[in-house]
Design a protein around this nucleic acid. Structure first.
Length: 411
RNA sequence: GGAGGUGUGCCCGAGUGGCUAAAGGGGGCGGGCUGUAAACCCGCUGGCUAUGCCUACGAUGGUUCGAAUCCAUCCGCCUCCA
């Protein structure tokens, strides 16, 4: 990854790979000499609206390039989203409607700008060139590859071997994505390691369109909060960029210790030197695991909500989980909002569903039976289904460890 | 055009006529423990103001006292041969 003559200090430091060897270094040197920023491509498919820490790995890398003076070309695959990237489809590919795609694209860009520098970002939609592509051009494009070449791709090969369906459309996907690089004159393309094949396809076809082949950089895939699977919304092991600070911190605390180094490198948002220092200290015992994880949690929160929010989130965590006390910043309702039935009593399952985010009355009954409903810290008798409203005046109602509701006193 | 496979709860997956709100696992939730919303242990896990009632095994319609299980038709998904 590093050239003997031209070292790349940090841009490739946490990357999984940068191809071809020395390619990036040469480009950086040329850019420097000519005073021209490189065009760094990142393509995303807006198949889901919200982005999470996993997406932020590549976005963060893109930001690093921006900070080094280069131009980010952020491609929204509004057109390719209709095809569906096969690498994201191990089983059923959720088909997304055009309206959804547009809506997703909007929030996606919005959220990505929390990481990227808008001043140095060019946002493009690939429908711009793919949507108007003529049959002739498409034929020209598809003739640049072969079935054998496409089937080299690992997940195609696996699915083919496992007798799973591969549609023609999916087969086309890498070519379309590769064409994006032609359309926007990419110098470098960034993506997750799962995108390697697609990135290389862009590199492959560019010369035949008379463009210099892009170099590619892949970033490792971030594991989710469970520490095993790739972070994804559908697995529920994610931290969303719009999550509340307390949630971000808590979810970070829940990752397995073994995942910490990787999270420092890919998710913390810390600079190269800082994150490596933390990992070293963690490894040699200078930094206790608990402290390391707290640092990680603060860093993650700080990345999206600012440093003070990171500290506050840690304090909130201490209150709720260490001292098991009621935090200050909890939702509150007026006494009049407490639902009362014809007999003038409070039906607890209804109350919990209405105000505490419990999924159903049956679920609420279960929680009551398990003794997880508390009033001012005191567990309710499992048999209790109804209460006198007066018993809820000016109390804190709690379900489980982290759902709280303050009820104002009766006036 | 022909042959075959398959469709079960959030997911995977057992179940070939009653004991099935449906084994087992995962996930989730709750409790305990803990530096931790980790690991581990235990419990719960369709809905309904509820000692009962309703809905549920791709869909519809049948057979039967009784169906996820049998029959018919249809729909979806997958593979192979041509």
């Amino acid at each position: 990854m590093t050239d003997d003559l031209i070292p790349i200090p940090t841009l490739a430091a946490n990357a999984a790979d940068a191809l071809p060897a020395g390619g990036l270094a040469a480009q950086l040197a040329t850019a420097e000499r000519e005073g021209r920023p490189l065009r760094i491509k990142l393509g995303v498919d807006p198949t889901s609206a919200d982005i999470h820490l996993g997406h932020c790995v590549v976005l963060g890398k893109l930001r690093e390039f921006q900070d080094a003076g280069h131009t980010a070309v952020f491609i929204i695959g509004d057109y390719t989203a209709r095809v569906g990237d096969p690498s994201q489809r191990s089983k059923a590919r959720p088909s997304v409607s055009a309206e959804e795609i547009d809506a997703n694209a909007k929030t996606y860009v919005e959220q990505a700008m929390r990481i990227l520098d808008p001043e140095r970002t060019e946002v493009r939609f690939n429908g711009e060139w793919l949507g108007s592509m003529k049959m002739d051009d498409l034929f020209g494009l598809v003739s640049r590859s072969t079935i054998a070449r496409l089937l080299e791709r690992d997940d195609f090969a696996k699915r083919y071997a496992a007798n799973e369906a591969i549609t023609m459309l999916e087969l086309l996907y890498p070519l379309l994505q590769g064409y994006d690089s032609v359309a926007i004159d990419a110098d470098v393309e960034i993506g997750g390691t799962d995108q390697l094949y697609n990135l290389l396809m862009g590199r492959d076809i560019m010369p035949s369109y008379g463009k210099p082949a892009q170099t590619v950089m892949t970033m490792p895939i971030l594991v989710g909060t469970d520490g095993t699977d790739k972070m994804s919304k559908s697995l529920g092991n994610y931290i969303g960029v719009t999550d509340e600070p307390a949630d971000m911190f808590g979810k970070t605390m829940s990752i397995p210790d073994e995942a910490m180094p990787e999270w420092f490198r890919l998710a913390s948002g810390l600079g190269h030197a800082e994150r490596e220092a933390a990992i070293t200290k963690l490894t040699n015992g200078e930094l206790a695991p608990n402290e390391a994880k707290r640092l990680l949690g603060r860093s993650v929160v700080a990345r999206f909500h600012g440093a003070e929010a990171g500290v506050a989130a840690e304090q909130h965590f201490n209150t709720v989980f260490k001292s098991k006390e009621v935090p200050d910043d909890i939702p509150e309702i007026a006494f009049g909002e407490v639902p009362v039935n014809e007999d003038g009593r409070v039906f607890l399952p209804g109350m919990l569903v209405e105000h505490m985010g419990v999924a159903s009355g049956s679920e609420a009954r279960r929680l009551l039976q398990q003794g997880s409903v508390r009033i001012d810290g005191e567990a309710l008798d499992p048999a209790t289904l109804e209460l006198d409203p007066a018993q809820l005046s000016g109390v804190v109602l709690q379900v489980g460890k982290r759902r709280f509701l303050r009820i104002a006193a009766d006036a």
